[in-house]
Design a protein around this nucleic acid. Sequence first.
DNA 1: CGGCAGTTTGATCCCGGTCAAAATATGTGG
DNA 2: CCACATATTTTGACCGGGATCAAACTGCCG
Lengths: 229, 229
Amino acid sequence: MHKLDESLLSPLPPFRQLQKPQIRAILDQATSHRFDSNVSVFEQSAPARRFFLLLDGTVRVVKITPNGEQVTFLHIPSGQLFGIAQALGRDTYPATAIAACEILALSWPTSLWREFVTDYQGFATETYKVVGDRVDEMNTRIVEMSTQHVEQRIARALLRLVNQSGRRTEDGIEISFPITRKDVSEMAGTTLQTVSRLLSGWEKDGLITSQRKKIIICDPHRLTVLGDL
Amino acid sequence: MHKLDESLLSPLPPFRQLQKPQIRAILDQATSHRFDSNVSVFEQSAPARRFFLLLDGTVRVVKITPNGEQVTFLHIPSGQLFGIAQALGRDTYPATAIAACEILALSWPTSLWREFVTDYQGFATETYKVVGDRVDEMNTRIVEMSTQHVEQRIARALLRLVNQSGRRTEDGIEISFPITRKDVSEMAGTTLQTVSRLLSGWEKDGLITSQRKKIIICDPHRLTVLGDL
DNA sequence: CGGCAGTTTGATCCCGGTCAAAATATGTGG
DNA sequence: CCACATATTTTGACCGGGATCAAACTGCCG
């Protein structure tokens, strides 16, 4: 394996307060991975042997119900830790992580987690902040599902994606990884047909543009208004 | 304030590994509170100045939407910590905590959190396990809301309550605090009318018994079957 | 006993799920 | 480069679960 550069980690929140030699030590213990789109990084309820840092791409976190239905929980943007079950005292992964596009990630054995938390200044607090952010996101998901209509849930789901992995283009802000109507429906708790109908309508109104597996938000502001009812 | 006994804390997970003098020190720093039913312990988005331990009773954790609708997130059973925003790097409470009945609680200033985590063996890991459990519960909520019908969501909401604060009676297992149809509807993301209809049906079938603000589950097994579809 | 909080029940309506089929991209091997 | 198989999207028709509106009923407390 070729040597990884310290600058990979030094700007990321969990490592920001560390010195070069510490980062070097962390990197030297890491394994790097490449995953193709739609390949799973780990599976729900498997023993959590490693934890991961996403260097490039987006990871989709999904749960599969006993009846085979999928629910999408989160999208992890690059630069964030994931698969950090041990942060919450779990020893198995609570969900499945799937590469939403081709991705690059580092990983470390779970056994190092304790070490990172105790040895590295700021690692614990920063990672718990990330966990806190995700809990917040799940909270708002629950509130939305309880109180809002499908249209607003879809609008908000798209805006969430745009905010964390949007890429500016000439037509508007593009979601930076391939995403299907089915994917969106699994985020919003609805069906792909309904998503298709809504998106078609929004495209007619100039709110968005879309091709197969690609969505560009042209008018985020009006979409926000829709999401707020 | 009268002296609190060490045996209050010693059997609880976060304190289980501690010695008597340590528990004494913790108790001596605590403030104790009594809240009447329906009084709020703290309000969402207020600065998180203290964290709490519920000694007796049940606390309902709710969020209020901009449009004034309430969504119930959790019920905290006695013996558990709550209001532990700092565990996830927050400095405000993410939700409102309301006494579901008359309750007793202890509290400590947020500034002691760091101390507890570093000084007391097992406190950190045990509290993160509690956080992990609540995250799990929210996860299953999201899955349920995305995939299941109202009937199953209500069934599961009741079973969750029964499992964590059920009290055995001659007729079945009773939910140990006053709970209205409206409360149940806010847990399941539906309306009080729908809850009323469903519960009436179940009562006719002998699954439950209910009086005003009181629900007794007579046949948990059949209710579980209903909840699994 | 009056009044309020909680519950029940009925009637109606519509959002969004379901079933079905066609249209449009993408990819693959010959 | 074309033909065929497959994945994704679109659109239509239908209908049912559950929200909404409305009103009566029941216990409970001061």
